[in-house]
Design a protein around this nucleic acid. Structure first.
Lengths: 219, 219
DNA sequence: CATCAATATGACTATATGGTCACAAATGTA
DNA sequence: TACATTTGTGACCATATAGTCATATTGATG
């Protein structure tokens, strides 16, 4: 948690600082990211940062929380009940992700880099915790779908849940792997990751959904 | 590539060195792994290491290569033609992996840690290259199965390939996530990762295969 | 204006490590 | 034994950064 001092800052300065660090952590590993550098860039003293945050990890967690909040505003709009089918819901979630990316590129960049970022041993614990939350959310969804007879019931729920989680991250990784999106480059050019790639994303997403339907749906 | 000096070493010493570093890289990130420490442990001079290898990366790549060779000896036994069905072949590959793990725990540990290991920016390039090889291998398999009419042909080959790749890594990650296996602990106790967990592995594997059959097979 | 608390500052410390290099030891050769 | 070549050695250097702290600055308050 940031200290009071940070919250008391003028909004402008607070955002300047937040954004500068978002940028740093968006292109570097947690361990690589240098407070010294960013602070120099910002023209503020390093000591000040330690008046705002307990330490590097505190700062990092704050950034995660802020970005998550912003993204939530988008995904919480989408509600399962509005869709007759889980996969249309799943699809809709991705579209919200697109909006988020377009409107908040910096936050999107940061979150894109998070996976790699979090492999640093220094934040492994935090990563495991986050991952657990996400997997559990997916497992809960699966459970619901099985319950209402939409998903198959002959496969372990945990397997379905974990696979659904992997499916979510898989689409993005697929697009990165095939150079359709390039988060690193997008960060440099400060453009949304999916700018001009909406069609490609949706096409790939639909392919994955086609596979997933066969795998998950009760036949 | 290790220097000649290294190859000329007595086999015993060569293995002592190799094993010590396998252990180090099995429990730490590439960046975290400390040559200084291992060398101290081994009781040899740091300078000697630089007579054996160009640098840290050279050493690391050597370890990858050695372990891969050993594992290959197992997986190359399995041939697609001996199975009527891709998934039985897939299953058989995992069983060979089990044998490898049981007979070469150290190498298995190292390879298990490789994924996390390779997220260090210092070796990102190497990781991408390795990943590319693996994904391409899977994509080739998929292409073959589609060709002989076993796999569906209405989904992009790249999607099938990438998903199959994810499936391979997914089973292991699933077991780790659910604490069925614990590579870190296994390294400490120097026991094979899957020791006493064969049944669990196979059960989970079969669940994933059940899903995959529905997803990939031509109906 | 004077006083006190909250902030800002940046030189400095502690800490590690990859890699080098001049020199020592060992091994081979004749 | 005398010489040459290959190996082994470990003190040393360059490098970088998270975090600290005594001090200076600012701002509010009466």
């Amino acid at each position: 948690m940031p200290r009071d001092t940070f919250h008391k800052l003028k909004e402008e300065k607070r955002e300047l600082i937040t954004n500068a660090f978002l940028r740093e952590f968006a292109i570097k590993t947690y361990d690589e990211a240098s407070i010294t550098q960013v602070v120099k860039e910002l023209g503020i003293a390093k000591g000040s940062m330690y008046q705002y945050f307990d330490d590097k990890l505190d700062l990092f967690m704050y950034l995660i929380e802020e970005c998550s909040k912003v993204k939530m505003q988008y995904t919480l709009h989408v509600s399962r009940e509005d869709y007759p089918d889980y996969w249309e819901y799943f699809h809709a979630l991705f579209l919200e992700g697109l909006k988020f990316d377009a409107n908040h590129p910096l936050q999107s960049h940061f979150l894109h880099n998070l996976t790699q970022n979090l492999n640093s041993p220094s934040v492994k614990e935090q990563f495991d915790q986050l991952q657990k939350q996400v997997v559990e959310a997916f497992t809960a969804m699966v459970k619901y779908e099985v319950g209402i007879g939409k998903f198959r019931d002959d496969v372990d729920l945990d397997v379905l849940g974990f696979m659904l989680y992997k499916l979510g991250t898989g689409v993005q990784e697929h697009l990165e792997y095939h150079n359709i999106i390039n988060p690193q480059q997008s960060i440099e050019t400060r453009t949304p990751v999916y700018q001009g790639k909406k069609k490609e994303l949706i096409a790939t997403l639909n392919h994955y959904i086609a596979l997933a339907r066969s795998a998950f749906d009760k036949q």
